[in-house]
Design a protein around this nucleic acid. Sequence first.
DNA 1: TCCTAACTACACAGATCTGTGTAGTTGGCG
DNA 2: CGCCAACTACACAGATCTGTGTAGTTAGGA
Lengths: 196, 196
Amino acid sequence: MADGEEVRSTRRRPGAERLLGAASDLFYREGIRAVGVDTVSERAGVSKRTLYNRFGGKDGLVAEYLRRRDERWKAYLQGVTEAVDEPREKLLAVFEAYEEWLVGQDFRGCAFANAVAEIPDPDHPARVVARGHKEGIEEHLAVLANEAGFEEPRILAERLLLLLEGAAATAAMRRSREPLGVARSLALELIDARWR
Amino acid sequence: MADGEEVRSTRRRPGAERLLGAASDLFYREGIRAVGVDTVSERAGVSKRTLYNRFGGKDGLVAEYLRRRDERWKAYLQGVTEAVDEPREKLLAVFEAYEEWLVGQDFRGCAFANAVAEIPDPDHPARVVARGHKEGIEEHLAVLANEAGFEEPRILAERLLLLLEGAAATAAMRRSREPLGVARSLALELIDARWR
DNA sequence: TCCTAACTACACAGATCTGTGTAGTTGGCG
DNA sequence: CGCCAACTACACAGATCTGTGTAGTTAGGA
């Protein structure tokens, strides 16, 4: 049912899908403001008119780009943590997931943090999505911390998220993945210090 | 002598000074790409020609904007840490300085991180300045950690910087200063755990 | 007083940006 | 077959962007 919807919306709207693919790549690598709608539609091999018909405008496309990224990242994280048995290891697996993510050659930092930096308006749909993304990650961390038996899972989750954010920002600036090692080792100490 | 130079360069080039003031405000609050050179020169009450004569172009102005911010912030931090006696308190004073900084109503995150998010080219002069800024902060932290008698001051400095970066990024996204409290309490534990 | 560096006013080139209007084409489904 | 939604091609409006060229003004110092 939900699957049927999915098939319909992707089969019968191939333009939207191609546009989102191109937008994701271009917006992330070159920046949102730096990429024009003409460039996106050209790269997607889809007419600009379709972009406006499907997404209403650039803002809509940007919001959808982040929404898609949010879904993908959460699914990836879910898979990674489910593949691990020990609750404590699940928390560490999150850090390893981030670390693995920025192995890719063209790491440009966190797409959501970048969007916040580029878009001053806090009510812009893209920023709403960005906030939701971070809330989701924190929630996931809190659940894992709770399952691992920590007394104050929310506080631990807050702290771990802070480490991930700091690592992503520093890694983007330095173009190095070393900061993620720093974050991981710190997380390890935090977790072991409060273990049980 | 150096003072004479300073007076000369500011007295005899009032345009550059006004331009930097306007640029600092506009670039930080609205974003670098979002603000055009016409807007900057108009706000500064200085002709656009002067902007190009003094800074070569927008890129030069952007780099100088960050350079200025770097100097100001380092001087501020220097003053804050010098005003404290206990080495351990000096480290905590850095966190309080960051916390105080974002009390200002229109907090838009770290200007250097934002510049990195907006400018993909790692060799852009503005990004070189941004990297230098973070190196400087880390160095400052390392000196303080060393003076406080920590065995591995560089590692502590790396970690504390990570906390500050994470706090700034999260605070910008959430538009809240709560993350800095999280970072400060975590820093406190880190420092006390390794004290002596 | 005169020289000169700093700055102004302003027009302009050329590119690029978001967004719209319109007429025509394609392809799957009833 | 014929309908209809999706998509295309393309021109165009109007704003905005960075950067330049040029002639003229202003003010401080030798």
